[in-house]
Lab assay of single mutants.
Amino acid sequence: KAKLLVLLYAFVATDADTICIGYHANNSTDTVDTILEKNVAVTHSVNLLEDSHNGKLCKLKGIAPLQLGKCNITGWLLGNPECDSLLPARSWSYIVETPNSENGACYPGDLIDYEELREQLSSVSSLERFEIFPKESSWPNHTFNGVTVSCSHRGKSSFYRNLLWLTKKGDSYPKLTNSYVNNKGKEVLVLWGVHHPSSSDEQQSLYSNGNAYVSVASSNYNRRFTPEIAARPKVRDQHGRMNYYWTLLEPGDTIIFEATGNLIAPWYAFALSRGFESGIITSNASMHECNTKCQTPQGAINSNLPFQNIHPVTIGECPKYVRSTKLRMVTGLRNIPSIQYRGLFGAIAGFIEGGWTGMIDGWYGYHHQNEQGSGYAADQKSTQNAINGITNKVNSVIEKMNTQFTAVGKEFNNLEKRMENLNKKVDDGFLDIWTYNAELLVLLENERTLDFHDLNVKNLYEKVKSQLKNNAKEIGNGCFEFYHKCDNECMESVRNGTYDYPKYSEESKLNR
């Protein structure tokens, strides 16, 4: 008799109507990190870190770059004969040098303040090359056809396309004075040089004057150069050297050249137009028929994500570079809930034993079982409120962090190594801060989002509990077992918050 009662009780308990509160689960393989956990499985997430590029040089917003090819900045601007293909260059979106560009200054020497000139050019998007001192009329008392084997072109001695090597005419090199007034309405880049012979005999042979000088002056520039005559090792078949100089001439300003020898005179100059998204990159990537809004030396990035880990040097509207390998923000729920887990921000989770793959029309909802059958029903209101809140948060985070910009490298010469090392340390410090901030932001927001979901499920549970009161009992896994019969209409009233407690209280009292 006792065995019969136990079996009867078990049958009745199993047959009781139930309603459970749960949440969506799926077959997603997404994982995120939080402050407290690593690799948390979630139903949905968004990636904030771009880690792919196309490996190509592309047009930037429809404008092609200027590819210097086998030449570098120095060779292009001075007019190395091997860089003749660059003479027609007028406009570009950015400038590309190759790491091993070999054609710079063909006659050995240095372009002074080269690093600063590169910085200036990094904001130039177009130029006009014009004859600042016409070759045939500007130097009537001097020979202007100086050439050298060091600047050979097609097997013949030649010289820079933008400079003139002035030497004596006959047996004399009379003092020369020439000036140019900038009437271009924009900055003009003027380049010139000073020749330093290897011996007094060479000085006399070329310029006749043993104590020659070169003077260059404008409103913002004033220097006097004296040739340094000295024996030097042979470089590119030359014992002599040429140093090259430049200045930016403001609109309306005048530049005056005065010399008694050794002047490498300007022939062509450049009127410059600035462009905020221009820059110089060093890259071996090849040019393709493609378009982008962000270019790196590795390749083009076409992404609206706020961060990238491809390269710190970028041109155009680019994500911020960070050292992170993963920045994924959760938008959905835990896919593998932890039992009795309390989140960092106070939300209680884990009283549900598992997510439901059968509930596909919402994030949170119900599963019921009664004599009429069983089924899932999503709670659309709480789901939609959660979707709206999380979507707004993700968009806000992306908008705040998605300050796209150009980031170019800084140039230092060989004598500025300590400054370069200090600059690298400062840049590394800023990069570490950006990386830390980005990672911390994602970790915190992921923790908040998961706790937010847990709290929403808990609130749904409490909503049902407050309606049923003692007409049902909690069975410990997020479910309630009714003390009365609850048909589909009754189940719907529980879900929509209109459950009639008094209607079922007498039946429940008897069954309790």
Rank of each mutant, 00 (worst) to 15 (best):
G210Y: 09
T254P: 00
W246I: 01
Y180S: 00
T167F: 07
D33C: 02
K186Y: 01
N100Y: 07
G252Y: 11
E115Y: 11
L176Y: 09
Y268F: 14
R232I: 08
F144S: 11
T43N: 11
H195T: 04
S278L: 13
S219Q: 11
L78W: 08
S208V: 09
W92I: 01
V194S: 01
E82Q: 10
D84P: 05
K135N: 03
S218P: 02
Y180Q: 02
S123Q: 10
A25Q: 07
E115I: 01
M242Q: 09
S205A: 12
G261C: 10
L263R: 00
N141M: 03
S52R: 11
L7P: 06
L111A: 00
S137L: 13
Y221K: 02
D110Q: 03
K175Q: 12
T31A: 09
V40G: 07
Q67R: 13
L60T: 01
L117K: 05
N39S: 12
G185F: 00
V32P: 00
P227R: 02
K169T: 11
T143F: 03
Y244D: 04
E202W: 12
F257E: 02
P227D: 00
R241L: 11
Y9N: 06
L77C: 01
N47K: 11
Y180K: 05
S200K: 07
K3T: 12
T31S: 12
I264D: 11
S198K: 08
L121D: 04
S45W: 15
C151D: 09
R129D: 05
L4T: 03
I280M: 08
V96A: 10
K56C: 06
H196G: 06
I280H: 01
L87N: 03
K184N: 10
Y245P: 01
T43Y: 07
L249T: 06
V124R: 00
N27K: 09
G275R: 12
L87S: 10
D17G: 15
G104H: 09
K70E: 04
V42R: 06
T177G: 09
L4V: 05
G146Q: 12
P81M: 08
E97C: 03
S45L: 13
H195K: 02
L48A: 02
V216H: 11
N211K: 13
P174V: 08
N26D: 07
K135I: 04
E50R: 08
S273F: 10
R224P: 00
V96W: 06
R154C: 01
P227S: 14
E277C: 05
K169C: 06
P251G: 11
S215N: 07
L66I: 13
L127D: 00
R161Y: 08
V194T: 04
P99M: 04
S278W: 07
Q203R: 00
L66C: 08
G279A: 15
V32R: 05
A13R: 04
G210S: 08
L189M: 08
I255C: 00
S172M: 07
L127R: 00
K70I: 13
I281V: 04
D84F: 05
L189C: 04
L86T: 11
H24L: 15
T226W: 14
A230S: 12
